[in-house]
Design a protein around this nucleic acid. Structure first.
Length: 210
DNA sequence: CTCCCGATAT
DNA sequence: ATATCAGGAG
């Protein structure tokens, strides 16, 4: 079985147990951008807890500019790196209000110019926010599972993304990312993966062999 | 490579 | 106590 066929089989199986959707809660691209910035090194569950209150208090990018940086920091204090993230969210809001008329950009090029936004965050906004398949979301889970499943071996995340883009059908790029992320959180965990109950164990080179 | 620097699981 | 969590910037 070559890698392309292996990917098809993996997608088929994971689709029977997960929805290929992002777990972050949001109702527009701006909220998605904020939630994704908050999600760095933080579980989606915690981000959703924070944003549930946050999005009621701050409705638009302008609202984030009306309060002090310290107040925004306190409102997101339970996520990791809250000071850096508060600064980045504020700076994003400023740029989006001034340069983009309050609308989050919908191209990779423009998104990458925003502070605190690299390819991972940009790919999330493009795929989950605008329905565009520009690339593959490479987060800690996609990175780990790709290596365990022997789909890619590049250490550099941008190179791994290029490697995976060659073996995953383009119309499945977004689905691939979100299915692997769900599986990474629930079964194929960084520590103590549950290989015995894994739906992929018979085709995984790393099963029971960590 | 280091810094950022909270909450939770083990 | 320590590893890890939907990372990115300097």
């Amino acid at each position: 079985m070559d890698k392309r066929e292996q990917v098809i089989e993996i997608l088929k199986r994971l689709r029977t147990i997960y929805e290929p959707k992002i777990a972050l809660k949001f109702s527009n691209p701006w909220e998605l951008l904020v939630a994704t910035i908050l999600s760095a090194q933080t579980t989606d569950e915690r981000v959703n807890m924070v944003t549930e209150k946050l999005f009621k208090k701050y409705r638009s990018p302008e609202d984030y500019l009306k309060v002090s940086l310290e107040e925004l920091e306190q409102d997101i204090r339970s996520v990791n790196y809250y000071k850096t993230k508060a600064k980045n969210i504020r700076a994003c809001a400023q740029i989006i209000v001034e340069k983009y008329n309050g609308k989050v950009p919908d191209t990779m090029e423009e998104l990458l110019k925003l502070p605190g936004v690299a390819r991972k965050t940009a790919n999330v906004v493009l795929s989950a926010g605008y329905g565009k398949n520009e690339g593959i979301v490479i987060d800690t889970h996609v990175n780990r599972l790709s290596k365990r499943l022997n789909l890619g071996k590049e250490k550099n995340r941008d190179k791994l993304e290029q490697e995976l883009m060659k073996i995953v059908p383009k119309d499945e790029w977004a689905n691939f990312s979100y299915l692997l992320i769900h599986h990474g959180r629930n079964v194929c965990k960084a520590k103590n993966p549950k290989c015995d109950e894994c739906i992929l164990k018979d085709i995984c080179p790393s099963a029971f062999n960590e």
